[in-house]
Design a protein around this nucleic acid. Structure first.
Lengths: 135, 135
DNA sequence: TTAGTTGCTATCATGAAGTATACCGATATA
DNA sequence: TATATCGGTATACTTCATGATAGCAACTAA
């Protein structure tokens, strides 16, 4: 069997996955959500994002920084101060996120008839829902 | 236009996560990409999506069906014939995917200075897609 | 008889993603 | 003296998504 053409539309799949990689993972969205409100220090992020460990926070911030979504600034104070903020480029995700958010809102309504879940939605992370709602 | 100021954590994170859950995972995008071209049978999908196992194909199709992205039709032939196709609702992901695709393309250019991904098979699929969706 | 087709499912193995916990050096506060 | 703060790292562990392989219940074609 010689492989035929258009196996899976790389032209369509690849860029979408590139975008997806930036915002996927358990903590990228909460981090972006926190930073969208303004610059924050490491501990501030750690406190505002419920249940995140410093290891994950550090790792995810580093990835966001590599992808130029986030700028990290170190101030020579004692103890050291490190500030994280969205770059202007990071804000370019807003259109994407707004599209996803709009779609997600109507999807939740469509699937379960109400916008705020107490029970089950397919593939939804209920812990996250509860924690975010409490905050 | 949604909101100029992005909302608080839960209002912002939860719907985006809902949307993300539909299209995340290793195989959802290739499956959607294949089905965007038109209805296909199980074995057709299995052959056209390189390296997917029947286990994963079955599982991902079931999830897409639960979320009303995909319609499954069984014909009483021998051997049995099963057709999968995007629902009209499934096509509503198009705006989201187009936003992500556009962002992904410019991001790849920005990060690596060139738009050449790993194993691209250039196709005209997006134009095809858009024209098919219009009908 | 043997092998192939269809659309799956069951079982087990693996690897990646995420968690838990402890720790760092320099300073400040109780 | 003891503890807390800052921004993390190191190590080990667990959990979850995915992979590999085999098989099923009908048939059909050679």
């Amino acid at each position: 069997m010689i492989k035929e053409d258009l196996p899976n539309c790389a032209d369509y799949v690849v860029p979408v996955r590139d975008c997806l990689d930036i915002i996927s993972g358990k903590w990228k969205l909460p981090i972006l959500g926190a930073l969208i409100q303004g610059k924050k220090r490491f501990k501030e992020l750690e406190r505002s994002i419920i249940n995140i460990t410093p290891r994950m926070l550090s790792k995810e911030l580093r990835e966001l920084e590599i992808n130029q979504m986030v700028k990290r600034t170190v101030y020579d104070t004692v103890p050291v101060t490190v500030e994280y903020e969205l770059t202007p480029y990071g804000h370019s995700l807003r259109n994407v996120l707004n599209e996803m958010r709009a779609w997600g809102i109507q999807h939740r309504k469509r699937i379960m008839g109400t916008a705020i879940p107490n029970e089950v939605v397919p593939t939804e992370d209920l812990d996250l829902v509860e924690e975010e709602i409490k905050s």
